[in-house]
Structure formats: structure tokens, C-alpha cells
Simulated scan of single mutants.
Amino acid sequence: MEDWFNRKIKPMLAVRGKPFSSDDYIYEIKWDGTRCIAFVDVGKKRLRLQNRRLIEIAYRYPELDFFDFESQNAVLDGEIVVFHNGKPSFPLLQQRDHVDSRLKIEILSKRIPAVYIAFDVLYTASDGWIMNLPLVERKKILDELAEEARRVTKSEFIEGAGVEFYRKAIEMGLEGVMAKRKNSTYQPGKRSAAWVKMKKRKTLDCIIVGWLEGEGVREGKFGSLVLALKSGDKLVHVGQVGTGFESDFIDWFYEKLKEIEISKPWFEAEFKRRVHWVKPVYVCEVEFLEVTEDGKLRAPVFLRLRDDKGPDECTVEGLYGLVD
């Protein structure tokens, strides 16, 4: 018998696009969360949560009541989200993402609890693997297995009216909308044009390759982070980000950066202050206004670390809006 519970699955990914309407697509909210595949064994009360990098993260979210949500064993695709005033919160999610202490996890699970929003199902005990079924059929199966739970729910969707749905989502202060072709199969690890993300903000995931020494209140810490993208085997400089950090994050992340400091520079560039280079381990998401003519990000703002994304996924193609 196949060991469905321990299978490694990379989630299907979307391309970026502009708002559109089509009767061939369904539309759902794009949640600002941590993407992960959920392996739920209802009978044995076992749970695995696997992020995009195939790292197990279930231990961080003990409050997620999957065994109440599912009527049978299943593998789901969805997002872990932390809400504040009815909307997803980046800063609060960040607090949950970087905690390993059992005591802190227990405290945070009560103080800022997360929700898992399921938008796809890849396997059920009764149907087996269903990734080759059309999306609309997988959605029906998800409806059938879903039951009332406090911290796990399913993503609602509409058909056809994508432009209007996107407009309303942005008015509500949400990140954007996902458009998914009704007859699309699930393609693990593939970035497919069958799924289109329509986002208000220009954001990019970048590799952190160094830091500039801070001044004033940040003296003795980092003032800004040096950002890069991969181009073949090389790292290409795309600028620095010095805003968007919370003070607690600066203190915590500065210690992490010192652990991976190296002496050899990644590229030649002029900096106003001393640069400390680091191994290309961490990925962060930044918001920016535009890309300048020399390939730098204009007015970038730090949004969050991306524990679920590896440096190899951050390429120069993303700089020009081809992928995200």
C-alpha cells in the first residue's frame, strides 16, 4: 500500500497577471499567508504541514483543528493565515513563523492564533490521488469532506466576474485575487498559466546577501539589507532595503546574520557605509514602486522573511514581473 501520509509534494504555483473575467475560471481571495500542504490522518490523529521548501511546520501551529474539519483522511493545499481586524496580518504571521520554543509556541497559539484556509484537495481515503481531476471536481470533493471547525476552513470562490471581484477585494484592503482555470489539473511544483495571481502591490522575493551598518537608533545593528537575485550561477545586486522592520525583528535577525557572515563580496558595488556580506541563506519579500533603468528596486519596503522559499527560486526574471 502506498504511504500517502509521508509523500513529499511541492505546491502548484501561479503566474502573475492583470485582472480579467472569464467563464472558464473561478476566482478566490489571495490570502497573505504561509503556503503549505496538509497531510491529515483522521484515524490515527496524525498531521503533517509541509511548506514550499518541504519543511515540516505543524509543530508551530497546535491550534489548527484539522481532525474536526475533515471527515476522512486527506491531503489538502492551502494557506496558514493570521487575521487582525478581519484581514490577514503580515507582522503577526511573522511572529508565528520564526518561533521554535515549545513554550512560546503554546503562548502565541492562544494570543495570536492562526487559521488554515484550504483551497484544494489532492488525495482522499475514498478517492485516492485526484490531482488529475479538473479543479471544479476537486472543489466538490473538498466541499464534501469539509465539516465545521474553528481554525480550519475552506476558501470560497465565485465564477466569471473576476474584474469586479478583484476591485472589491482591493477595496477591502486585501492583497489580491487568484484566477484558476476550471478544468485545470494539479501540477505539483510547476508554475502554470492555469493559475493567475492578480495583486495590487508590486512585490518581489529577494536573497539577502549582506547588511550595511546602522546609524542613530540602529547603531550596532543593521541599517539596511543588501538584496540580490540569481542569474545563472551569479548573484545580481538589486538594491538595499532599510525600512519596514520592527525593532524586535532587527534585534533577532541581526544575531542570525552575524552567524552567517563571510569575508568575500558577492559583487562590486558602491555603498555609503560598510558592508557585511553573508551566505545566501535568507529570502525576504519587499514591496517597491518600480524597477529603475539600471535594474534596482525603487523605494523598497521590507514585508517579511520567506522561510517557505529558497534562494534558487529568486531569479532575475521575477524582477520584470514575469514570475513572483
Rank of each mutant, 00 (worst) to 15 (best):
T185H: 09
E147F: 05
S126V: 09
R111M: 15
I130G: 06
M198P: 06
V136N: 10
T185Q: 09
P188N: 06
E156Q: 11
K199V: 15
T203M: 13
D127Y: 04
I117Y: 03
L133M: 13
N183H: 14
S192L: 15
V121Q: 01
K154V: 05
K154N: 06
F165D: 01
K190D: 14
M131Q: 05
A193L: 13
V163S: 07
G162E: 01
K199L: 14
L122F: 00
G176K: 06
S126E: 15
L174K: 03
A179I: 07
E137F: 10
E148W: 05
L142A: 04
K140V: 13
L145K: 03
R151I: 01
G160V: 08
L133I: 07
W129R: 03
S184G: 10
E159N: 12
E147L: 08
T203S: 14
Y116R: 02
R150Q: 02
R181V: 12
L174P: 00
V136Y: 12
K197M: 12
F157Q: 06
D120P: 00
I170N: 03
F165V: 06
G189H: 10
A125D: 13
R151W: 05
T124M: 01
A193R: 10
Q187D: 12
V115P: 04
P134A: 12
K182V: 13
